[in-house]
Nucleic acid binder design. Structure first.
Lengths: 154, 154
DNA sequence: CCCTGAAAGTGGCATATGCCACTAATTAGA
DNA sequence: TCTAATTAGTGGCATATGCCACTTTCAGGG
């Protein structure tokens, strides 16, 4: 087996994770594309859908995403009328978001496609192994890479 | 435990993978940042380093990355003098790349930082579990999501 | 040797993500 | 109550990634 025939096989956990993310992302994107949404956008609409008119910070936290990055990612979805934002009534600093009627319709349309991708993937790696993988990834996403220095209790 | 205290827990393999990639990416980025490189750039320099004056297409394949995306990502590294490109002598369509003296020095500098991140991560999740995770991710990156339609043999 | 089709990159355009510097709105204090 | 510190977002800037339309080279078939 020539080394050029296989992936990079770097021992770096980060590089390996990104490599897999690129590949899987393209797969989901391809399958979901007929809806006009990217995989990431589908995930964002879904997160908003399952939340209760969440504040931006809440979504960012749930998605383990930078708040400003979320704001950027949200723009095209708002521009296309799938999501609408409004100020919180008790704290005007807080901006909440919700799906529009179109957004909900688009989410439902995309969910059918997502199911195909999801199922195809799970058929290939096995439902149980996929669940194990997600569990491991959830753990990674929840890790607390303690503060670089200081910030110790008391 | 309030639900806002944990990640989104989406059943979507793609969303879960991206979520973990964002978190881990930031961790490695933070630790490697003193070198001035991002985690992705470190990975790219490393890949070039372990290859033999690879053609762009070869790197793209090894990293399971789009060729044009690789070209874009390579620009800042060439601009900063860490990588240099040159045409293949037998096929002028092919562009090969290699690390410059500075690039090699920067890679060595960054590798020390990378080791810290790598070790901190593995201490948290366990060396064996990290290896298992990478194996699973390498498998995902190597999957063949057969052609959408047609393209069947004969 | 000329023409056609495949192969390798480039550039433009759009989304994905982060960090940093700021602004606006709240809350904690004196 | 007026001010300092904190919290939630925004905008700008830079990298990360992809897709598509081209341009340049090669490899073949006549």
């Amino acid at each position: 087996m020539t080394k050029t025939a296989m992936p990079g096989f770097s021992p770096c956990n980060n590089a390996t994770l990104r490599r897999a993310a690129r590949k899987l992302g393209r797969f989901y994107d391809d399958v979901i594309s007929p809806s006009g949404l990217k995989g990431t956008q589908y995930g964002l609409l879904y997160q908003i859908y399952v939340s209760n008119e969440p504040a931006m910070g809440t979504i960012a936290e749930a998605m383990v995403m930078d708040l400003s990055a979320l704001g950027h990612t949200l723009k095209p979805l708002i521009r296309d009328g799938f999501v609408e934002a409004f100020a919180d009534k008790d704290d005007r600093r807080v901006k909440r978001v919700r799906l529009t009627r179109q957004g909900l319709a688009k989410l439902e349309e995309a969910t059918k496609l997502w199911s195909i991708a999801q199922q195809r993937f799970e058929t290939m790696v096995g439902t149980q192994r996929a669940a194990d993988l997600r569990a491991m990834l959830d753990e990674v996403a929840a890790l607390d890479y303690g503060p670089p220095e200081a910030a110790l209790p008391d």
